[in-house]
């Protein structure tokens, strides 16, 4: 039987954006971005294993303006995904599904992700000379 090619779930465009759906899709987007960004973890470790010259190259690449910009975005995505992931783990236990709590935990995730990101970069600027 020939079936027409039609849009399959999830099709986001038919729903008005809400904080719940926006945070859900942001979890996915940050997850994909972090998967790509995990390349940097391997790159950093391989450069450190390869020797001082390779490590200096990685340092100047990651420590430069664009390197820092990417690392900052990476940190924000990381802490968002981590905090919202904990929210998902709580949901997995069957708790926090009522709407007031869904909104409360949603705002808590956004605040916690922002605070952790700023905290790490502030400490890095003070103690790490980043």
């Amino acid at each position: 039987m020939h079936t027409k090619q039609r849009p399959l779930s999830p099709h986001l465009q038919v729903y008005r954006p809400q904080i719940t759906s926006a945070m859900s899709i942001c979890h996915r987007i940050s997850g994909v971005a972090l998967a790509v960004g995990a390349l940097l973890l391997t790159y950093w470790l391989v450069a450190a294993a390869a020797g001082p010259e390779a490590y200096a190259g990685a340092q100047s690449l990651l420590g430069g303006f664009f390197g820092k910009l990417i690392l900052f975005a990476f940190t924000l995505a990381l802490f968002y995904h981590l905090c919202n992931g904990i929210r998902h783990l709580v949901w997995d236990t069957g708790h926090g599904f009522d709407m007031p709590n869904v909104y409360r935990s949603g705002y808590a995730v956004m605040i916690a992700a922002g605070v952790l990101t700023v905290l790490v970069w502030l400490l890095a600027l003070i103690f790490g000379g980043a």
Binding site: L82, G85, H88, L89, V120, G128, G129, A130
Partner: peptide, 23 residues
């Protein structure tokens, strides 16, 4: 995911002091 919560927090906060350190 559960394993990554402490590992990521440990790694992120450790990197603060080692990001600018020498080889």
């Amino acid at each position: 995911a559960i394993a990554l919560v402490p590992l990521v927090l440990w790694f992120s906060f450790s990197l603060i002091s080692y990001a600018g350190a020498d080889y």
